[in-house]
Simulated scan of single mutants.
Amino acid sequence: MRITPRLSLRPVITALAVATMAATATVAVDTTPSHATPSHAACNGYVGLTFDDGPSGSTAGLLAALTQNGLRATMFNQGEYAAANPAQVRAQVDAGMWVGNHTYTHPHLTGLSQDQVDSEISRTQQAIADGGGGTPKLFRPPYGETDATVQATAASYGLTQIIWDVDSQDWNGASTDAIVQANARLTDGQIILMHDWPANTVAALPRIAQDLAGRGLCAGMISPLNGRAVAPDSVG
Score class of each variant (00 low, 15 high):
2 R>C: 00
5 P>T: 15
8 S>R: 15
12 V>Q: 00
16 L>R: 00
16 L>F: 14
17 A>N: 06
23 A>M: 13
23 A>I: 14
26 T>Y: 09
29 V>L: 07
30 D>C: 09
30 D>P: 00
34 S>G: 06
35 H>A: 08
36 A>G: 09
37 T>A: 03
37 T>L: 09
42 A>P: 05
45 G>Q: 06
46 Y>V: 10
47 V>F: 03
56 S>D: 11
57 G>V: 12
58 S>V: 07
59 T>Q: 07
64 A>V: 10
65 A>S: 13
67 T>Y: 08
67 T>I: 00
68 Q>W: 06
69 N>D: 01
70 G>I: 11
70 G>M: 07
73 A>V: 06
76 F>P: 03
78 Q>C: 14
79 G>Y: 11
82 A>P: 02
82 A>F: 09
84 A>P: 04
87 A>F: 03
87 A>K: 05
92 Q>P: 01
92 Q>R: 02
94 D>R: 08
95 A>Q: 05
97 M>Q: 02
97 M>W: 01
99 V>M: 03
102 H>N: 01
103 T>F: 08
104 Y>Q: 01
105 T>D: 02
106 H>R: 08
106 H>F: 06
108 H>Y: 11
109 L>H: 01
113 S>G: 06
114 Q>N: 12
114 Q>M: 04
118 D>R: 15
123 R>V: 10
123 R>H: 12
127 A>D: 07
129 A>D: 13
130 D>Y: 11
132 G>F: 08
132 G>T: 12
133 G>S: 06
133 G>Y: 12
135 T>K: 14
137 K>Y: 12
138 L>C: 14
139 F>R: 00
147 D>Y: 09
147 D>K: 04
150 V>Y: 11
150 V>M: 12
151 Q>F: 09
152 A>S: 15
155 A>Q: 13
160 T>R: 14
163 I>D: 08
168 S>H: 01
169 Q>P: 00
171 W>N: 10
171 W>Y: 11
175 S>T: 14
175 S>G: 05
179 I>H: 01
180 V>K: 05
181 Q>H: 07
181 Q>T: 13
182 A>C: 08
183 N>Q: 03
183 N>T: 12
183 N>D: 07
183 N>M: 13
185 R>C: 03
185 R>E: 05
188 D>V: 05
189 G>Q: 09
189 G>A: 11
199 A>K: 09
206 P>M: 03
209 A>Y: 03
209 A>P: 01
212 L>R: 04
213 A>H: 05
214 G>V: 10
218 C>T: 10
218 C>G: 02
219 A>L: 03
220 G>E: 02
222 I>P: 04
224 P>A: 03
226 N>C: 10
228 R>I: 14
229 A>R: 05
230 V>I: 15
231 A>G: 03
236 G>H: 13
